[in-house]
Design a protein around this nucleic acid. Structure first.
Lengths: 110, 110
DNA sequence: AATATTAATCGTAATATTGCAATGAATTAA
DNA sequence: TTAATTCATTGCAATATTACGATTAATATT
């Protein structure tokens, strides 16, 4: 069906998967890393930096913005993008908890 | 095209996106959480626990196994699945580094 | 006003993902 | 041997994702 049956899962499980999906494309990983490095950035800069077409970058930015991981402010004809640190921290906590599940000592069960 | 242009990105960026994609479906999140909780588990248990059809669970298990996050051992007619702790830790380090990028103090740039 | 710049949106093609019924393979139980 | 159990695989339908050319919208510059 191509459609996840989200109603079968907990809010936490769905939330983890939604954030993870945001990182599920190398272009979005690259965008986020660049925003961390540069601290503020225009769409055109990312087009040059990454090498994908402008509509493609714009689409990836839209997704990241929709999830709240970045925010964009209009500056003349440009839009300045940067990390939304508050939401990033919140997301990080959720993901870190998932990744840090205790590994039981007798893990070599099979 | 529906196809990521992986050659434009670093190995690290691609690696992050591949792991993230594994967590990009709530069923796989649920499977991993259950394996952490139960420590060892048969496919049939997960079918009951999660509620998706057996072929669907089997497919998700296959992906997680392909990435090395879990391993499965045949036990009679069953297959016992569990977390591959070594690879999990390796993945965790990669993801944690990405998530933990330093947030510069003057973050409210826009 | 006319033009340039920047980025979003639309439309579309190609590919990937999700889900399951049906089937198959391997082992165990009777 | 036959039947039952467990899981993988196949094949298919529905939907999602990725990418980009063309266009549009908004502002800035001349």
């Amino acid at each position: 069906m191509g459609l996840a049956k989200t109603e079968m899962f907990t809010d936490q499980q769905n939330q983890i998967s939604v954030f993870a999906k945001a990182f599920g494309h190398p272009a979005r990983v690259a965008i986020l890393q660049h925003l961390f490095k540069i601290d503020a950035c225009f769409c055109g800069d990312l087009v040059k930096e990454i090498g994908l077409a402008q509509p493609t970058i714009s689409q990836h930015l839209k997704e990241l913005k929709y999830l709240g991981l970045i925010k964009g402010t209009v500056e003349g004809t440009s839009v300045c993008y940067c990390i939304d640190t508050e939401n990033w921290t919140e997301m990080k906590d959720i993901m870190t908890e998932f990744l840090g599940q205790d590994l039981l000592p007798k893990d070599e069960c099979c």
